[in-house]
Write a protein that binds this DNA or RNA. Structure first.
Lengths: 329, 329
DNA sequence: CTGAAAGCGCTTACAG
DNA sequence: CTGAAAGCGCTTACAG
């Protein structure tokens, strides 16, 4: 920076001012500095800036499991959205582990981050609440995606869960399905629980009995869907439809049904959750509830943009889901 | 840090020394400092350390497209491996764009990174070569995963491509297949080209004709496989096997075959590439070539670990792939 | 083995 | 509008 200052015949302070877009710089000075910067191909040291400003130009993304399509799609959109406003994305794959979350929260202050994006489907452990608040207190911008964390004072952008599942189950009922099973009421999963509630509500609302035997708990991935359905069929359970808590579970479930000669959708209609790309290429193609990671990412970005004009931000942004009807239901 | 020094009754220099594991600290001092650190829950400011040391404790990961399962699986393993040695992972999703790569390379010096991991399937543009070298010159550790970049002096950990595809095509020939198509000789894709070469080599080696009409070019994803096969069938092309350049293409291809009443594997045998989890749950399940992201990540990590004892590192690490035989071929 | 001092490369009150 | 100076929180030669 000193070199630039010398080349432009100004002080380092002035260089810094044009770098930071201070408006108290004369046009002439600004031009001279800009020219020098270009000529020397100068780029300010981000660590020095960060140290001085007390904050890195980086945001941490805490993600349940980047290998799940839903999370990788969101990560892609978030990275792109934040890069636009000059923020780097530091990725922490939590692998659905509470301990790793707590660990991160402990180490976070030392990183002097600009903020953290929490993209977790799992319920947040009690202990994390105060730590989140402390971080926010310290000037970090915290935003949750996919799960409402308002009770910890964390602004959240979430998709419909309960209402979406209810809509889908209602659709199944309209198609004449009566014994509708649900895979994905996962212990400790905030979204799994929400979706399950929508399922149950739709059932009761339609005057159908709610049968615990038709609710299967497990993880969110393929194997979980496959195993749950396999066990159900072995156990002689009868059902004519299945609502899954994720597309991956749904696809695993369809494999299990197919392996036992159960035809989808003739014998059992299946609806997934999340509209993963593969669902379109499955045969029968997967009926599912849509997801809008791009909109979520853009909304998250707003929280990191400089606020001009005191425009208050909503603490909770709700994104809609549509029932994407395809061949499996 | 000054607080810690005061609490321990030592100088900040000593605190720094125990923090950095310098061995020229007496046991007693060390204990006092450690106690004070624990009591005050002190964590050194990473930005200050980075500024002083001239390097952040972060590595950038350049990835083709995090939404492709292959990349997300690798990313997950890399993040975990690097975290073990205290390195943060800054994610840059390139979306297969040359411009974004060049852009990053330009901005990289200002970030003072510890290193960068290049995980790209696309051929590297000429201009990137010198920039990569310049970064390495500046003390960054650069490692390529998935593509051999030794010609730019970048150590690389790669999986078999050509040999693996050849193995798979040989297998198809042994099964009696004679008209074997290939989807995935993608212009600009380094790995796509390599895989294609293995395909052609196996054909010629077996004395089978190589037919350009049976080689389809496109992107790596589902739609590419679907569209290529749809067009081939519409064009009346005949083939009894298909080697795909990725699992996603293979699954898209299978959808297209199914839609036109072509039965897999009876009429057309299909082999994918990469052993994505979904392949196991497709019906028929997908025969494919394996992939070892965990081994790749661990190998990458070795390049970032402090070198003790001058143990020279290989510039090229080759990981094997196995033919994972399932129902589709 | 330990401490005082300089400095990493910036930014921002403070004067003018 | 501009510059000189202090300081962000560390680490590491340099003396002792």
């Amino acid at each position: 920076m000193i070199d630039v200052a010398r080349a432009a015949g100004v002080s380092p302070a002035t260089v810094s001012r044009v770098l930071n877009g201070s408006n108290s710089v004369s046009a002439e000075m600004r031009d001279r500095v800009l020219t020098a910067i270009k000529k020397l191909d100068f780029r300010p040291n981000q660590m020095a800036q960060g140290l001085r400003k007390g904050q890195a130009n980086a945001v941490a993304l805490l993600v349940g499991d980047i290998e799940q399509t839903h999370f990788s799609a969101l990560t892609k959109q978030l990275q792109a959205a934040l890069e636009v406003i000059g923020l780097n994305l530091i990725l922490f794959n939590l692998g659905h582990s509470d301990n790793r979350l707590l660990d991160f929260l402990q180490r976070a202050p030392a990183m002097r981050l600009r903020g953290v994006v929490v993209a977790l489907s799992d319920a947040i452990p009690k202990k994390a609440g105060p730590m989140l608040s402390a971080l926010a207190e310290a000037g970090l911008q915290i935003v949750s995606v996919g799960q409402n964390l308002n009770r910890f004072d964390v602004p959240s952008v979430v998709h419909e869960e309960r209402a979406a599942t209810a809509r889908s189950v209602r659709f199944l009922i309209e198609q004449g399905r009566r014994r509708i099973a649900y895979v994905g009421r996962i212990k400790g999963s905030a979204v799994g629980t929400e979706r399950f509630r929508g399922y149950r509500a739709a059932l009761l609302e339609a005057g159908l009995p709610f049968d615990e035997a038709l609710v299967w708990d497990n993880a969110f991935r393929y194997a979980a869907g496959y195993d749950a359905v396999s066990r159900a069929l072995e156990g002689g359970l009868e059902f004519d439809a299945l609502q899954a808590g994720s597309d991956e579970m749904a696809m695993g479930a369809i494999a299990a049904l197919t392996d036992r000669g159960v035809v989808v959708p003739r014998d059992v209609a299946v609806v997934g959750f999340g509209d993963v790309e593969m669902g379109r290429y499955l045969r029968p193609s997967l009926t599912t509830l849509s997801n809008n990671p791009a909109a979520a990412a853009l909304t998250v970005r707003e929280f990191f943009e400089p606020v001009n004009g005191r425009r208050p931000r909503r603490n909770l942004v709700l994104l809609e889901r549509a029932l994407v009807r395809r061949a499996s239901a």
